[in-house]
């Protein structure tokens, strides 16, 4: 079970290709410790699912990875780039990491297409026509080519989230972060979003996913990390964590969400 405690650069498995390394990350909001010495490694092509009760620090960890939140101590690397170094430009980090939000956060005043082209034009410096073609490609990839001119208010929740994914994918990220992408959606609308995510898994995208969708975790995840009270309690392949977890807390958690 070397992956269970996998964390620092030293105990990599031979032959692996680490893309994301998190080392001893700590984060507090006031007196409340949200992350305590979290360490883990995600290899290129891996799909790591973070689970845990609300308030366990999953979302904070994701935000630390693209520096929407600054860590108190510890380091995070994307390949050789130290994300958490003060001299690292957060915009460069965010250009290489895509993020999908629980509350979707499409730009309300822009059409689906313009939601995608904004980053391409302003961050990547593409001209308008090039960006438009690229955006239409990405919208097609998530099955929404016909909704390119719709405004967010005219789309269903599932469609909005798929645009959110297209917006992140258009920037050619090396890593995709999903922060509870389906928890604001009805179950039927979740499915279309999960289908797009599963397609990304097949394409070999490296992903870190916070979700309570155990179907996705079973089907697509290469690893599951169970966090509780800011600590990694247990980490391993899906079958092990679901069927035969080492820790009582993990077992109790999976038991509780099974009855939801």
């Amino acid at each position: 079970m070397s992956r269970e405690t996998a964390g620092t650069a030293d105990d990599r498995e031979p032959g692996t290709d680490p893309l994301l390394r998190i080392e001893d990350v700590r984060k507090s909001y006031g007196s409340e410790e949200v992350l305590r010495d979290v360490s883990m490694t995600v290899d290129r092509g891996d799909v790591e699912v973070l689970v845990g009760p609300s308030g366990s620090g999953k979302s904070t960890l994701l935000q630390c990875i693209n520096r929407l939140t600054e860590v108190d101590s510890g380091r995070i690397f994307l390949e050789d780039l130290e994300i958490t170094a003060p001299e690292t430009d957060p915009n460069e980090v965010r250009g290489r990491i895509g993020m999908v939000f629980q509350d979707i956060n499409l730009f309300t005043h822009l059409t689906a297409r313009k939601n995608v082209t904004l980053g391409l034009e302003k961050v990547r410096g593409m001209d308008r026509e090039e960006a438009r073609l690229r955006a239409d490609e990405e919208l097609d990839r998530v099955g929404l080519a016909d909704q390119a001119d719709s405004y967010p208010a005219q789309l269903s929740g599932g469609q909005k989230q798929r645009v959110g994914i297209a917006r992140a994918l258009a920037m050619d990220p090396e890593l995709m972060l999903f922060d509870e992408p389906t928890s604001a959606l009805d179950p039927e609308l979740s499915n279309e979003v999960l289908a797009v995510m599963e397609q990304l898994v097949e394409e070999g995208m490296t992903m870190v996913v916070v979700t309570h969708e155990m179907r996705f975790a079973r089907g697509g995840a290469t690893g599951i990390t169970f966090l509780d009270e800011g600590e990694i309690v247990e980490r391993g392949p899906p079958e092990t964590l679901f069927e035969n977890p080492d820790h009582e807390r993990t077992a109790r958690f999976f038991e509780s969400i099974r009855h939801d």
Binding site: L68, M99, N105, M171
Partner: peptide, 14 residues
Amino acid sequence: DEGQLTAARAVGLS
């Protein structure tokens, strides 16, 4: 909504 600026920054905008 605060999320609008967060999303913009996540795309890589300053």
